[in-house]
Write a protein that binds this DNA or RNA. Structure first.
Lengths: 296, 296
DNA sequence: GTCTGACTTTTAGTCGATAAAAAACAATTT
DNA sequence: AAATTGTTTTTTATCGACTAAAAGTCAGAC
């Protein structure tokens, strides 16, 4: 059956929201809650019913009030709020990147299903979606093979990334002065500066900023295939950095400086300079990734 | 349960093979058959047992003989030899391209499952794999939306295609003289000439030749992401041309001539000329596709 | 040493059922 | 009448079971 992770996450979110209200305040309408928590009204009602049962909400119908001071504000554990599919992804990535799975390893659906505690259909679905990452391959009627997180993988990934990024950088540099992209670029430049000023404490935040920066650039000339490729990059980097902390602070600091050079070059509208800065940054990003693949 | 399409296809293949042998000839060994038909020995044995029961094969053990003249050489209908997943793909493509599905249409798993006569899991699996084509989009917990086989789709597809193809053409032009690629290119050039000489009768054969030609070019510098993108193109074109026969002969003839120009340019090793011919061909291919999207 | 026979074990493909979540519809209240 | 709550219907996410196909084993025959 379907898991109730959506409900549990919504329940926790509702608690957070209520704790920001004052004792006795009226509860927002079901539709408002539905919109703000990103779930259906059906789920909102279930959450409300549940919160009423534990005394965090009182009243009924249009007259519902909130009791953030209630002693029974118990949250569901974080682990129960993540849907099965996401768990499978997490566990698989862990197996692949952290446990250094060998190229050529056969992937066994039933085995993974048992290890991850899910039904085989869940594994199949994940593998089917994951195929586009280029790290596994299907042999009909005979399972999947892991192709390896290898040097070649990193090189091929970056070859495409460079083509896409250069093309987008050129498009961005050619944007008219009035375009909102320049405003967004300035905003993200400032974020870089801020992060750099507090790098010791906040260097973990770079991963997210990096992803948003590159997505901003490619938004200059939207293309669904490029966007979908960036999804792959984002996921790979997300998990990769989660398990490879070596030199993280320094790596990120270098990358931020490269980004800033790149941004300045874009602001000059000089295509050649922008290309140069873009190439320089990607080359160093590739080196970083390569260093960790060759450890395998 | 699992369907026995593998068995049925192998059975038909075995009949074909036997019909090419003379009456009373010995049957090849189980291992030989397994290798030549691309199925396991287990399946081969099942086929042999079945063929013996219907009298097409006589004897046992090492002494098995073949009777192609037997009156009971009945093949399984073609439709029973195609696995569920392939059927779903076919039906979905038909719905999308032939029935001109509207952009924004919601895709309903249960509904499709009923229409196609398969379980919902089969549909889910297909949609998950099909997502990378950029024609559908998932909204978690709320199904899929068809984004439409639109002008934009064709433009975005061809933007990527051009980037990839130019890059591969450059790589091919830079190949050393001794490389086997030149031999293969000459072979495929000849195929083009042959097809052109018999265009009236054989213009249907172009689709396959086209796909092989472009794959040969991209094999000059292999990259899994590019290969996977060519899979998308191949599928799109396969189905598209299956249901859009307008001007097919003339279209294909023009494309063959463009290919020949392109091939000649590659043989000169002159990168600029190769790029020019490549661009010219892709532009005309894009026009063709655009014409049929705008009909929607 | 290759081939068949007769198994056994493992794995993939497919189905149908069921609870959760979303969506649609109906009934209120302000 | 617009917004809100109450009720019913539709649709998705997940499981577990079942069968075909693959893969492996090992003995014996040619």
């Amino acid at each position: 059956m379907k898991t109730d992770t959506v409900f549990k996450r919504a329940y926790n979110d509702a608690l957070d929201l209520i704790s920001r209200l004052a004792e006795g305040e009226p509860l927002p309408s079901e539709n408002t809650l539905s919109a703000s928590m990103g779930v259906s009204r059906t789920t909102v009602r279930k959450v409300i019913a549940s919160l009423k049962a534990s005394g965090v909400i009182s009243g009924a119908g249009r007259e519902r009030n909130v009791h953030p001071s209630s002693p029974s504000m118990h949250r569901f554990p974080e682990s129960e709020t993540v849907p099965m599919a996401a768990q499978v992804e997490e566990r698989f990535m862990e197996w692949m990147l952290r446990d250094n799975a060998r190229p050529g390893t056969a992937i066994n659906e039933l085995d993974l299903a048992r290890k991850f505690g899910v039904a085989t259909t869940g594994i199949r679905e994940f593998l089917n979606r994951f195929q586009r990452f280029g790290l596994i391959e299907k042999r009909p009627n005979a399972g999947w093979v892991f192709k390896g997180f290898t040097t070649n993988f990193a090189l091929e990934l970056f070859e495409i990334r460079e083509m896409f990024e250069l093309r987008s950088a050129r498009a961005l540099a050619a944007m008219p002065d009035g375009s909102s992209h320049w405003v967004q670029l300035e905003a993200i430049r400032r974020e870089h500066v801020d992060l750099l000023n507090d790098i010791e404490a906040r260097y973990h935040d770079f991963s997210d900023l990096d992803s948003r920066f590159h997505r901003l650039i490619s938004s200059a000339a939207p293309n669904r295939f490029i966007d979908s490729f960036y999804d792959i990059i984002t996921v790979i980097f997300h998990y990769h950095y989660q398990w490879n902390k070596h030199d993280e602070r320094q790596r990120n600091e270098v990358a931020i400086r490269e980004h800033l050079t790149y941004i300045e070059a874009l602001f000059t509208r000089n295509v050649t300079m922008a290309e140069l800065a873009c190439r320089a940054h990607l080359t160093s990003a590739r080196e970083t990734l390569l260093r960790s693949t060759s450890m395998h």
